[in-house]
Amino acid sequence: MDIRDDSLQKIARRHWYNFVDPVTKLLLALFLTMLSFDFTPLYFEISLVLFSLTLLLLSRLSKATVNAVSFCLFLIVTMVVIQGLFYSHNVHPLFSVMTITFYREGFLYAATMSARILIIIFAIGFFMGTTTVSENAKYLESIGMPYKLVYLLMSVCYILPQIQQNLSKIQFVERARGINPQKTVMQKVRSILPILIPLIIKTFDQSINRSITLQLRGFDRPERTLATPKYPYFKAKFSHYLLSIVILLLIGCKLWQIISRFL
């Protein structure tokens, strides 16, 4: 029995998205973002939104993505309103409510930017929903990233949920103790110090201990056994090269668009 592999995952069927490696997924997100910057017709933007949404729906729609969309929704609405009313190139009225006129140009401008934001959210959501922290860590190490960096990136992913837990505990205790409602901003800021300082000292102490432990446990030694990727991926290297080249071309293209405006 292989004790170090999650046996549940072995039984579970491999999905199509498990054949795509994490780096390709990230490059894909970057590629879609660059496309939306290079080609701005609204129909094209909408089809990109639909494409990335399809990717997401065919894999896993995580709660985080839904949260991200709802988080941005308010901003998108205000953006449409502000640009529809005040965009500097506004000429053609789109519609009027009472005496307020919305303009076509501003509306289109805001719609393009909103589409871009949705594309980024969906493409990143696809990456996040279909990979796990340990899969990413193993893959990055296997393609030659120094273990120190892999550790750094991944430990952040692990520390956030822990901190979240600590925080809700503290907030619970604080609520039970009953803090007086504070009036001014300064009073509010001062009221968090008695909680914040011990928490910060504890957090830094844990990092000191962890750094000692890691050194004692032979972290980052040259003879470390390289991790093997969790899944065999389909044409990983080829996809990296292809996507990187296309992304570079798109960036070059965008830069040329900007420069040629000044020529």
């Binding site: 120190k148 550790y151 750094l152 430990s155 952040v156 692990y158 520390i159 956030l160 822990q162 901190i163 979240q164 925080l167 914040l196 928490l199 910060i200 957090t203 830094f204 844990q206 990092s207 000191i208 962890r210 750094s211 890691l214 050194q215 972290f219 980052d220």
Partner: peptide, 16 residues
């Protein structure tokens, strides 16, 4: 290594 373990703590404090 100390910096490597300090950085996640800093990110956590940002979050808090």
């Amino acid at each position: 290594v100390a910096t490597v373990t300090l950085i996640p703590a800093a990110v956590g404090i940002n979050y808090v």
